[in-house]
Design a protein around this nucleic acid. Structure first.
Lengths: 298, 298
DNA sequence: CAGTGGTCTAGACCACACT
DNA sequence: GTGTGGTCTAGACCACTGC
């Protein structure tokens, strides 16, 4: 009894339980043991007349390419392929997962659309990384009002503080921790054309970023997210930001060279790694007198 | 001499000149007359050894599905299918353009990804519209700090002004007009929970929005962009926003109920219709004391 | 040259919506 | 049932990369 009605060596891929950090179970094993009592994912009508509804808690099986996407995601998460490296070719993955190349392609397409993978014709498919030049400041949306980011030169980073402390209630909630759990706190400024323009406070889960020091931060010229990848194996995949206009207070105005009460752009960012796990809370204040935060709506 | 080397009735689609508003030339005619001297788009190696470089100004021919995408775009732009209507099925389009269904599918996929089309399984593919409920406020990124947009109730719109005037230099430049050209100017507020929260000034090309009046704006409950679609045939496809933190001045503070000098979020939006034609310049001031501008980075 | 991703086609079946 | 988009497969050829 096979799960699908198509002719040649069809694959029966079940929606893998996304829970747990372990490497996914061997694929063939799943296939070999799956046809006993578990509901059949697709195309079962040829042999059984059971309706697609598999039960009260049946989580609905996803299309094959979504399951492949999930398996690739698990390999990324588990570190089987590291940022910057190439993943196996489409043909190899098709063989591994026992599906056609087209199905693997569609899975990779979606991952590439979300910037988790990067395809390079003739070379292969690579795990996206924050260490690449053209992706360097993908998450930094501040641009000069006139001229472009190139003409302004690179941002000058200055780290003011880095220490381990216990998470307050709101920090813990944002990061999915418990109040009192250890977090790493960082404060830094970013300057454009000699002018400090951004003042940021960061909180990172202490567990994942054990050993991060101010000295380590200052030692490299790479973006912080590139450092997180290489030193801690944490790749930031996406982020949500909340923007407000606020007035500068006496604590922060000096760092940015403005008067108390001057309008500043407040940017609170929650950055996620694979599988929507929050890994960084960042609260920034931006001077926007000669810069602006750019955004595309579509 | 045919342009492609594949077996059954291949289509020779040339990159249509994107210039000019006219309906694209008949497809079969292009195919019939194309093999004379114009450079062959793809797969010419079987008959000619000319390198892909077709000349100093050779604009490089695009893949078939990109050309199909362009043709569909022209039909959308030309109004052959209006917002909310369904477009022909994939099979019909494949027949019309003399390509396979899969190629049409890929073209539609990209247009759907950019929210120009909406696919509905079992029903068809539809031209996206701002008149739909769930897309209603896709371009409004302000959210309450606590609770969600639903609990807050709908925004209450109030139109303060609407008049025809001559474009200043900067307004004209943004809209691709000449200084002095006619534009429609609109001022309005948006209130959440009785509190005016957004004060916006809009400039629209006078040519395309001839006849827009304050009375017409106030008469409907639909979003402004839905009105633009139904009354003026202008569909806003995407927009770019530039955000700054500014201080309220004596002219605008009363509308939003804040003191002069209070921090406000300044949002300048340039909205585009098909083919990247700018159609609206909007300058808004947002109160962000109990709201925030949300943004997703990925 | 071989290997990679990119495009195009053709045909099959599925899930869904309307009638 | 018919027609729609959604998924999956298979095979072909192309364009690019690097040996």
């Amino acid at each position: 009894m096979i799960a699908a009605s198509r002719s040649p060596a069809p694959a029966a891929v079940f929606a893998a339980t996304r829970i747990g950090p372990a490497v996914p179970a061997n694929f063939q094993e799943i296939m070999a043991t799956s046809s006993s009592s578990a509901p059949v994912p697709r195309a079962a009508t040829a042999e059984t007349e059971t309706p697609p509804l598999s039960g009260p808690a049946g989580p609905a099986f996803s299309p094959l390419y979504q399951q492949i996407k999930g398996l690739i995601l698990q390999s990324l998460e588990g570190g089987e392929w590291k940022p910057g490296e190439s993943i196996p070719s489409e043909m190899e993955l098709a063989a591994r997962y026992r599906v056609s190349q087209g199905t693997v392609r569609k899975a990779i397409d979606e991952l590439a659309a979300h910037h988790l993978l990067i395809r390079r014709q003739g070379k292969g498919t690579f795990v996206a990384t924050h260490a690449e030049q053209h992706v360097n400041y993908r998450f930094l949306r501040l641009s000069p009002d006139r001229g472009d980011q190139q003409s302004e030169g690179p941002a000058l980073r200055r780290f003011l503080d880095c220490k381990r402390l216990r998470a307050s209630a709101d920090i813990a909630r944002a990061l999915g921790l418990r109040a009192g759990d250890a977090v790493i706190y960082v404060r830094r400024t970013l300057a454009f054309a000699q002018q400090p323009t951004i003042l940021e406070d960061l909180w990172l889960p202490g567990n994942a970023f054990k050993g991060l020091t101010l000295e380590r931060l200052a030692r490299t010229d790479a973006p912080m997210y590139a450092l997180f990848e290489s030193e801690f194996g944490v790749r930031m995949v996406r982020a949500e930001e909340k923007l407000k206009a606020v007035a500068a207070d006496t604590d922060n105005c000096e760092w940015l060279g403005v008067q108390p009460g001057a309008p500043l752009l407040s940017v609170e960012r929650l950055a996620y790694t694979y599988n929507d796990v929050p890994m960084e809370l960042r609260r920034g204040l931006y001077r926007t007198d000669i810069h602006h935060y750019r955004n595309m709506l579509s």
